[in-house]
Structures are given as structure tokens and as C-alpha cells.
């Protein structure tokens, strides 16, 4: 079945189904977002990052507190990283890779397993495009890494950290290209062709 673009308020099922990013009204299910509907699943094409426990994220330390750090991670809610969870020390502005360990009902978020990222550049993309940037079994991101020679850390929150001595500008352009075309098929081939042509 072809996947089709649905708009907020478009019907996705005649039954009251539990579908994420959809809601039930008078026994029918409607989409709440602009998304792709395929096989009973609704994938949003745009939207804010909603953190889940176990997500691997890239964040920026925004505040050093007595007992830990405030981390900005592309959400409305700053996450907290306790000093007890880590052995390193961070400064304001450091970029870290961490895992979400806890979220409560008012979206207070705690992080763990943090690691400081080496000097590099931060690329901010929409979090819904992250699966395309990574690709099936890391195929897309591995391809960008090997052809640009960069180290790339992709956070589930849509922050991408590019470091190392490779061609970071090319890597950033490839990521921007994936972000703009994330909803199309045959993207891996196009990105591969782009990276090859850019190298020459």
C-alpha cells in the first residue's frame, strides 16, 4: 500500500484505533499532524522532539549547578545531569552525548551515561528526520562518515555533532540534504551520488 500524506483532521481509520499522533472522536480516528500514513502507522513529517527513556541524545551544557548540569537538548524542558552519574567535569557550552534515564509527568528529564564530545560543529535538524539520517542499520550515517572522514554523533533529539579532521562542511551539506528530502525514497543513492560528485 502506498503511504499517503495526511493533514491535521484527516481521517485515518473508521474505527477508534490507538495510533500515535492520532486522536479518536465519535468512534473514528483522525490525524493530528502532517504525516505519512502507511500500514496503520502514522509518521509525522514535522514536529517537536518528545524525549523517551533510553533515547541517545546530543545536548549542550547550559548551566553548571552545585549538584550537576542543565542540558539543552532541543526541547522546551532543560534536562538535568547529576554529578553522581559522571566522572568527568563539564563547563558551560560543552557538548555531550548522553542517555535519557527518567522523564516524569511534567516532562522533567534526567540524563545518564554522559560523554563529552570533542571539538566540532553542531547541526540542528528536525528530530523526526533522525531515522533517515541514520538509515537502515546505520547505512546512511556510515556512508557519510566514510566518505567525509568525519566523526558524527547523531542524537535522537535532532542534534548532530560533526567532529574530526574530515570534510565537516560536506558532511553538514549531506545532512541538510537528507533533512530536506527525508520523506522521499531512493535517498541513499542520491546522497551517495552527491558525496561522490562533491569529492571530485
Amino acid at each position: 500500500m502506498e503511504s499517503k500524506i495526511v493533514m491535521p483532521g484527516d481521517i485515518v481509520s473508521d474505527k477508534p484505533d490507538r495510533i500515535s499522533y492520532a486522536f479518536v472522536d465519535k468512534g473514528k480516528t483522525y490525524s493530528t499532524v502532517v504525516g505519512l500514513f502507511h500500514d496503520g502507522k502514522l509518521v509525522p513529517l514535522e514536529g517537536p522532539y518528545e524525549p523517551l527513556v533510553e533515547d541517545q541524545i546530543v545536548g549542550v551544557v547550559t548551566e553548571v549547578k552545585f549538584s550537576g548540569y542543565s542540558v539543552e537538548m532541543n526541547t522546551a524542558y532543560a534536562a538535568f545531569l547529576s554529578s553522581r552519574e559522571i566522572r568527568e567535569r563539564y563547563e558551560m557550552g560543552d557538548t555531550i552525548l548522553a542517555r535519557v534515564s527518567m522523564i516524569d509527568e511534567v516532562r522533567s528529564t534526567e540524563l545518564t551515561d554522559a560523554k563529552k564530545l570533542p571539538a566540532g560543529r553542531l547541526v540542528k535538524v528536525s528530530s523526526v528526520k533522525v531515522p533517515r539520517i541514520i538509515g537502515k542499520k546505520n547505512s546512511m550515517i556510515d556512508m557519510i562518515k566514510s566518505s567525509t572522514g568525519c566523526e558524527i554523533s547523531v542524537g535522537r533529539n535532532g542534534y548532530v555533532w560533526i567532529s574530526g579532521s574530515g570534510n565537516a562542511t560536506l558532511a553538514e551539506k549531506a545532512i541538510r540534504m537528507i533533512e530536506a528530502q527525508a520523506h522521499t525514497s531512493g535517498l541513499t543513492d542520491r546522497v551517495s551520488a552527491y558525496l561522490k560528485s562533491a569529492k571530485q
Binding site: P8, G9, V33, G47, P48, V128
Partner: peptide, 11 residues
Amino acid sequence: LADAGIPMKDL
């Protein structure tokens, strides 16, 4: 709002 991906019951 739809472009921002904010969940809405209707456009």
C-alpha cells in the same frame, strides 16, 4: 502551525 508539526484536531 501544521508546518511546525504542532498537533491539532483540525486544519
